[in-house]
Nucleic acid binder design. Sequence first.
DNA 1: CACGAGACCTGTTCGC
DNA 2: TGCGAACAGGTCTCGT
Length: 274
Amino acid sequence: MPELPEVETIAQRLREGRETHPLPGMKILRTSLQWPRHIQKPSLSTFRRRIKNRQVVDIGRRGKFLVFTLDEDYMLIHLRMSGDLYLQTASEPRGPYEHTIFYLEDDWQLRFSDSRKFGRIYYVQDPEEVLSHLGPEPLDPEFTAEKLTNRLWKHRRMLKPLLLDQRFIAGLGNIYVDEALHYAGLHPQVQSNTLSNHQAQKLWGGIRTALEKGLVHNGASIDWVYRGGNFQNEFRVYQRTGEPCPVCSTPIERIVVGQRGTHFCPGCQPEKHL
DNA sequence: CACGAGACCTGTTCGC
DNA sequence: TGCGAACAGGTCTCGT
């Protein structure tokens, strides 16, 4: 689920809060930790002790991580596959997967719903303890087409798994990689070091286009996990196996690359380039 | 260094 | 209808 646009949307919503109650400024009074493995760092008891009475100052994003700046220290949350994070009041009904809940002032609660329990929470003094391995932010103005090109040429890997690698570039997941490669007209199994300058340029543009469209639509909502975005209606190839390509009408194909379902248009994204 | 398999979890959808 | 298999937006670790 949550890739860069979805995580960014969630961060925005938490910053704004509900009905003129932004999360920044609220204090965490206590926590309910029904799935202890959510807490990755430090130990459960230390986490419980240190998070108590911290005030949220701001909520940001780096890659797919939510970064909570507290009045002391930082809390980072990774939603992995099925996580969602939202503000509710004590009177609103509990969802079945809200394994971790932060109790705030005035009956507000920050609820971490996570049916597959893959999500992770970190409490650290320095966010870099968790984020240091991440590659560049794809929408950072500093991240130019030239920078991407140089990084692509440093590796000899297929584009699909390389773009999913958070050390190479941060924030892309299965949806946005498939969409970006289609915008760029590149086959997912092309080797990164064989791209021409022009092709690398197009890949840079494809990544930006896919992410920016995702952001405009507040991310994608798929399956039973609804988060209010509607980018799924704009998918060109993701989960559109057999449907005609919106550009050339060739039926979209699904293959498995690096153990991930991969959707592409054989017409727009040929394996061999001219 | 690059890649595949398996693990971590649970819910939904597919195929017989 | 029923039941097991396959599949799912992510990432880590291990073996080749």
